[in-house]
Design a protein around this nucleic acid. Structure first.
Lengths: 206, 206
DNA sequence: TATAATAATGACACACGGTTCATTTTACAA
DNA sequence: TTGTAAAATGAACCGTGTGTCATTATTATA
C-alpha cells in the first residue's frame, strides 16, 4: 500500500500542466489548441492529462482564476502603497499599454477569443456574465474609494462610468489585436480614454 | 454540346448557397459552422459546394463583401436625402442600437468572432487590416463632409476621432454580445458615446 | 430522338482530436 | 528483496469534417 505522490506533488503536476497549456494558448489561441498540444508541451503521455482535467474549458477556467487572483493582489498592493486612486488607474493604463505593445506574448487575445466565441453556450455565458459583473464591481469599488477621498466628483453614476471605461478599453484592445498597435494608434487612443475618464470623474485637467 | 446553366442561373445558385451559409453562420458562429452544414441548409449534396466555393473562408469573405456594399449604398442614399451629417451619424447609432437589441438574429457576432480569431493567420490579417482602414476612411470621409459644411469644429485630427469612435463602438458591441444589452447597459452607453462624439466634433449641446 | 457536354451526386478515403483502458512503471512499506 | 497500490503510458477505438472522383442525371443541340 502506498499513495505515490503527495498533495504537494500533485499540485505541482497540475501547475506544470497549466503552464504548458498557457504557452499553447498564447501560441495558438483558444479554439485551435488541443488536449494533445498540452500534453505534448508538458512532455507527458496522452492519457495522463485526464487524471488532472476533464476538458480544455476546465483548464482555461483554471488559468483565468489564477490571473484574477494576481490582478486582485496587484490592486490591493497598489492601494496600500499609493495615496492617489487616480495614480493607480493611470498606472494600470500604462501597464495595459505595455501589454498591448507585446500582445503576441500575452494570453489576453485568447481571453477575448474565449469570451466572444462562448456566448452561445449557456454554461460559458453564465460564467462570462459573472466575470463581467465582478470586473466592473471591482473597478467601481476603486472609483468609490476615490470619491470618498474627495479625489473625484463624478458627472454620472459610477456604475455607468465603470461600464463605459471597460467597454472603451475593450474596444481599443480588440482593435489593437486586430491590426496592431501602430495602425490602431493605440497609444493615442489610450491617452484619449484617460482624458475622457478624467472628465467623467470630474478631475480638473493638469 | 451544351452548357447546362446560364451565368445568371449560376449566380442564383451561388446566392442560394450564400443565403444558406449566412443562416448557419448566424446560428452557429464562425468556427462551429461546417461546409456540411451549408450544404444541408441549402438542400444540396456534399460535393456540390466545391463547384462554387473552395473553403469556408471564401464563403464568409463573400458575405462580408455583400454587407459592405449594402452599407456603402445606405450611406450614399442617406447623404442624398439628409441635410445634416450629424443626423446620419446619429441615425446609424440608432440603427446600431436596434441591431444590438436583436443581436442573436444578426451576423455581427460572427464577424467579430472571425476577426478576433483570425489575426494569427497572415492572409486573414491582411484582409482584416485593409477592411479596418477602409472602414475608418469611410467614416472620416463622412466627418470631413461635416467639417466642410461647417457642422463640426473638431478638437483633434479626424483620423483619431474616427479611430476612437470605432473602437469605443466596438467595445460596446462586444460587451453587449458577451452579457446582453440589458446587463451591458447598452442604450446608455451608446448615448454616452454619442455625447462624447459630439464633444470631440465640437458640436454644441442641444 | 440521339448525343454530348456539364451539373450534380454521394460513397469513400483520409486526417485529426477526444477518450478509454489494459498494461507497465514507480516508489514506498513490509 | 518483494509485494502492492497508485501513477503513468500509449495503442486503439470512435466520431466528425474535408475533399475527391467515378458515376448518374439533366438538358441544349444536332
Amino acid at each position: 500500500m502506498s499513495p505515490k505522490i503527495t498533495d504537494e506533488q500533485r499540485e505541482q503536476r497540475r501547475q506544470q500542466l497549466l503552464n504548458a497549456a498557457k504557452l499553447v494558448f498564447i501560441r495558438k489561441g483558444y479554439e485551435p489548441a488541443t488536449m494533445k498540444d498540452f500534453v505534448e508541451e508538458a512532455g507527458m503521455s496522452r492519457g495522463w492529462i485526464y487524471l488532472y482535467f476533464q476538458t480544455k474549458e476546465d483548464i482555461f477556467e483554471a488559468l483565468m482564476e489564477q490571473q484574477d487572483l494576481e490582478y486582485e493582489w496587484f490592486i490591493s498592493e497598489a492601494l496600500k502603497k499609493t495615496a492617489s486612486v487616480w495614480e493607480i488607474i493611470d498606472g494600470s493604463f500604462t501597464q495595459l499599454k505595455n501589454e498591448l505593445m507585446f500582445m503576441t506574448d500575452s494570453i489576453l487575445p485568447t481571453f477575448y477569443e474565449y469570451y466572444l466565441t462562448g456566448w452561445r453556450d449557456e454554461q460559458r455565458r453564465m460564467r462570462l456574465v459573472s466575470r463581467y459583473k465582478s470586473g466592473i464591481a471591482r473597478f467601481v469599488k476603486l472609483l468609490q474609494i476615490g470619491v470618498d477621498r474627495g479625489e473625484f466628483i463624478p458627472s454620472m453614476p459610477l456604475d455607468l462610468i465603470g461600464q463605459i471605461t471597460s467597454s472603451y478599453q475593450e474596444g481599443i484592445m480588440t482593435h489593437t489585436l486586430a491590426v496592431g498597435a501602430e495602425k490602431a494608434n493605440t497609444e493615442q487612443q489610450l491617452s484619449a480614454l484617460s482624458t475622457y475618464l478624467r472628465q467623467l470623474l470630474g478631475i480638473p485637467r493638469e
